[in-house]
């Protein structure tokens, strides 16, 4: 079972490597959206500093949603998803492996580049760690929730917009807690509680999302 999960992660990373432009678009989208705010608002350091956590989190959230459509759609179109459903591995494990690979490609780069974005907002260097950590805990949850939506809207016409409508409201708690972690740290109150909450959400998502994704895929494939 672990062998099959490793095989799927390897396959997804290989595919991402062969389609580098897809990965680059999501990352560039994040950078550009997050850079538009300082340009639009102007050089007001205090304002920028206070909106930074929220804006960076929203940009990360939109960027991670942008790449969700690809998660199952391509495999659905060429029939490889059918083969995964009929594989020797439980579908939940397949779903978890695919979502993990999606996060490695679409979420992890955001975590790495976020401190660089924070520089534009004049966020104190002491907060970079909390920002990156909150994103590192939060973006996998976004990938999991998004994967459920992507599986449900698979093969539907206009699925992209429907996916956004379905998934964005569910992202709200993660956004509030994630951005809150950075704000609390900025206020000097410590971000421990928020980070623990994000961690708990991640554990919950890991436990339940794969089965929800599997059930959604079974419905969509009928």
């Amino acid at each position: 079972m672990l062998e099959a999960a490793r095989c799927i992660v390897y396959r997804e990373l290989l595919l991402a490597l062969r389609r580098r432009s897809d990965v680059a678009t999501a990352l560039l989208f994040f950078v550009i959206v997050a850079s538009l705010f300082p340009l639009g608002i102007g050089a007001e350091p205090n304002l920028l500093r206070s909106i930074a956590p929220g804006v960076i989190w929203v940009a990360a959230l939109l960027s991670s949603m942008l790449s969700l459509g690809r998660l199952f759609a391509a495999d659905h179109a060429d029939g490889t998803l059918e083969q995964m459903l009929l594989g020797a591995t439980p579908l939940g494990v397949v779903a978890l492996a695919k979502t993990f690979a999606h996060w490695l490609v679409a979420g992890l780069p955001l975590v790495a580049i976020a401190p660089l974005i924070a520089l534009q907002y004049d966020l104190p260097a002491a907060l970079y760690g909390v920002l990156a950590l909150s994103l590192a805990l939060g973006t996998p949850v976004l990938s999991m929730i998004g994967a459920i939506g992507a599986a449900l809207t698979l093969g539907l016409r206009g699925g992209g917009v429907l996916l956004a409508l379905l998934v964005l409201p569910l992202y709200v708690p993660v956004l509030i807690v994630g951005a809150g972690a950075v704000e609390m740290a900025a206020a000097g109150l410590g971000a421990g509680a928020q980070l623990l909450l994000l961690g708990a959400a991640l554990v919950l998502a890991c436990a339940f999302a794969p089965w929800a994704i599997a059930a959604a895929l079974r419905i969509s494939m009928e």
Binding site: A4, C7, L15, R18, D78, Q83
Partner: peptide, 21 residues
């Protein structure tokens, strides 16, 4: 649908299909 990925070689496709099955 043939269930092969465009971006992979024939050999890679077959190997991955066998592993998953």
């Amino acid at each position: 649908a043939p269930a092969v990925k465009d971006e992979l070689t024939a050999g890679e496709n077959l190997e991955i299909a066998c592993r998953l099955a």
